[in-house]
Amino acid sequence: MENKKVSRWATIVSYLKRFKWWLAGICVTILLAVAILVPLPYYVEMPGGAFDIAQVLTVNDKEDKEKGSYEFVAVSQVRATFAWLLYAWATPFTDITTAEETTGDYSEADYIRINQFYMETSQNTAIYQAMTLAGKSVTLDYQGVYVLSVSDKSTFKGVLNLADTVTGVDGHTFNSSQELINFVADLDLGADVTVQYTSQGQKKEAKGKIISLSNGKNGIGIGLVDHTVVKSDDKVTFSTGAVGGPSAGLMFTLDIYDQLSTEDLRKGRVIAGTGTIGMDGSVGEIGGIDKKVVSAAKSGASIFFAPAGDNYKAAVKAAKKYGTDMKIVKVSTVQEAIDYLRNTD
């Protein structure tokens, strides 16, 4: 009898042991799933690669057959999970940022839209600058105004989205954003107003009211900037897909200029760089330059253009830390970049 009791307890203990390991296995699986799949209010930024501009840009429908390449570099951003945070802590040139630091006050969808706007604007400015430098005939045609923000007090909040283009107000069209601003400022506070706009290629219309703005003037409560399109006998086509942001402006300008001019500035070299491009040809600073230096070095670039100022200092520091002999070149204007390529081999 006693032996039977012992046998039963032994069986129960054996089951409990098996159950314990089975339960532990489930817990570990759940924890791993949480670590890998559950998003946190952070982003991880890391080198995103370097890309031959010839793969995303054509001039006059001709294949660019010259040796070497111009490359734009990217920063990759992923929504962090616990596993991504561990990776970032253990990996150089990888940073953790809060969602607010990354997207600002924008929703994730609006953040993507606004970066697409910045990409399109940088492309237009690059085309205009390159054609001007190459002595080509070029103009900028006004299309309307881009919506960059919508005030919480605006009656168009939730109607107009970032990167929509306002083409008219009450049936009136304008030749600049300032003309639109002046028009709505003269309307009475609380007056009904109808806005004509395009959103994702579709023409739309919305009704709202004139409100008092923080500057004391009347308006519709949107932040805006001119939406222009380049007009020229020469044709430049981009296919950058979902890549956003303004930081490829300098490199786009160099590539277009080189194809339009009779020069061969590349001379067989792999040339990378970053920086916004202004309407006056100035090169502006950008974010994540240490990661872009790493991307360029991995691609085999021999030259990396960095905007003058803090960007240049950070680029030199990153190159030294990574251990590349890639030449870091400081530029304030696109003309300085052209002169450097022209005068070096």
Rank of each mutant, 00 (worst) to 15 (best):
L224G: 03
S212P: 03
H172K: 15
I222Y: 02
D188Q: 12
L140T: 01
K231R: 14
T155K: 14
I277C: 08
V193Y: 03
V184S: 05
S176R: 05
T198I: 14
G216M: 01
L224D: 12
I222W: 00
G275R: 09
I211R: 08
A242V: 15
R269W: 04
N182P: 00
D226I: 08
N218T: 11
L148W: 03
T155S: 14
T276N: 07
F183S: 07
E179G: 02
Y257V: 09
Q200S: 14
G223W: 10
K231H: 09
N182E: 13
D188A: 12
M251H: 03
G221Y: 12
N175D: 12
I211Y: 01
V230P: 01
S177G: 11
G245H: 08
I181W: 14
Q200L: 14
V147K: 09
Q143W: 06
Q200K: 15
F183A: 06
D255H: 14
T139H: 07
V236Q: 07
D255Y: 15
T155Q: 11
T173L: 05
V150M: 10
S214N: 06
K207F: 01
V230D: 04
S176D: 09
L160K: 13
K231C: 00
A163E: 04
I181A: 12
Y142L: 11
S149E: 12
T228F: 01
S214A: 10
V150I: 15
L260N: 03
L180T: 11
D226W: 11
V270A: 13
K157N: 11
D141N: 14
T165C: 10
G268K: 14
T274W: 07
L260H: 06
G245A: 07
L162G: 07
P246S: 10
G216Q: 02
D186V: 10
T165V: 15
T173P: 09
V159G: 04
L213G: 02
G249W: 12
A163F: 11
G190I: 02
S199M: 05
S247A: 14
L187K: 14
V243C: 01
L160A: 10
G208S: 06
G168Q: 08
A206I: 07
L160N: 11
V150L: 09
T165G: 00
L189Q: 10
G158A: 04
S137L: 02
L224V: 14
L180Q: 13
T237K: 15
V138E: 04
N218V: 06
T253D: 05
K203S: 09
G190K: 15
D233F: 00
S261V: 02
V145Q: 09
I277T: 11
G244R: 13
L180F: 13
S212F: 03
F174Y: 04
V193M: 08
A185K: 14
T155Y: 10
L140I: 00
V243D: 04
Y197P: 01
K207V: 05
K231D: 05
D164S: 12
V225R: 11
I256M: 02
L160V: 12
R266C: 07
A272C: 15
